[in-house]
Design a protein around this nucleic acid. Structure first.
Lengths: 165, 165
DNA sequence: GTCAGTGCAAACTTTTTGCAACTAC
DNA sequence: GTAGTTGCAAAAAGTTTGCACTGAC
């Protein structure tokens, strides 16, 4: 799907959603959706608001941001994710699938991919569930933390053997 | 691994962690870890505190709960997860791998499993990353919401064709 | 014209911080 | 004895709500 087809699809999803719920297409809603298209990666209600004001020259109140983020989520356009212990938002399209390596020690997250895993997941067919996307969080230790842990354990063992002398 | 081996492993991980960071083994910490072993499923700082007070007859202050949850996370014993838009905590052992079907419309989560997917994920070997567990979130529509959406769309189309007459 | 949407401020919830008293080591 | 730990209360951060005014339909 190319970029303009994609935008058509998104706008359609959004106006369908508005219609079906008897909601109105306000300038604030258009501007917020536009900003979300332009932001790359994760955002918070505050960072979205900042981006709107600073880069798009459009003021939106906090209440409006929160209110509409909920609508975007309901419409399937935005998703909440947990990143290093905090809630973040992201576009739900065009980021449908990713593997995240989450270090349980320092909290850093690295995104990666793997064709075999991807294929296997997308072949998943569950009864009474229509998949639109997925994220795989892999927990463990990043290189730095694993090395640091090893060093500390070694130090500990030396200390213990000295203590025993 | 049987239950007692598992507890030995957990206690060891925890006391190693305490040692390595120069931390102390207080009654509060022991009681909190014990409670987390006993709680089945997800919890919040508040529900944990309630459980401690009501079922274990042990008062812990909020500050202590938050402080120690961070330590448990660092030690790899507890994990934060996002459930229906809210942050929850869970034991990080014994729940290492699971597939969650998350409905993006109503927020319900169903846990499921799939051997092929599991095997493929556990075969993942990333450079400079040591895997200890994973969770796969699959986003989409649950049976109920998919059906409701279909009904609404149908109704919409009927309405439109009537309007045009 | 109607009713949903907006901004603002206040309220509420959740999490963090500062500090004096306490206690594990 | 010392330094990490705790509970409490206050502060900070994040989110929701009530309300009068505005504007999309």
């Amino acid at each position: 799907m190319d970029k303009s087809d994609e935008m058509t699809q998104i706008n359609r999803t959004w106006s369908d959603y508005l219609h079906m719920h008897g909601l109105r297409n306000t300038p604030e809603r258009r501007a917020l959706l536009e900003a979300i298209c332009l932001i790359d990666g994760l955002f918070t209600p505050e960072s979205l608001s900042d981006y709107m004001r600073e880069s798009r020259n459009f003021m939106v109140s906090r209440a409006t941001v929160y209110n509409n983020l909920q609508h975007f989520i309901q419409a399937g356009l935005v998703r909440k994710v947990l990143m290093a212990g905090d809630i973040r938002y992201e576009r739900a399209w065009n980021r449908k699938s990713c593997i995240r390596l989450v270090c349980t020690n320092c909290g850093t997250v690295t995104e990666t991919s793997d064709d075999k895993v991807r294929r296997q997941i997308e072949d998943l067919r569950k009864k009474r569930f229509t998949m639109t996307g997925w994220t795989l969080n892999v927990y463990g230790l990043c290189g730095k933390c694993a090395a640091a842990l090893k060093r500390r354990q070694k130090k500990m063992m030396n200390k213990n053997s000295i203590d025993k002398k």
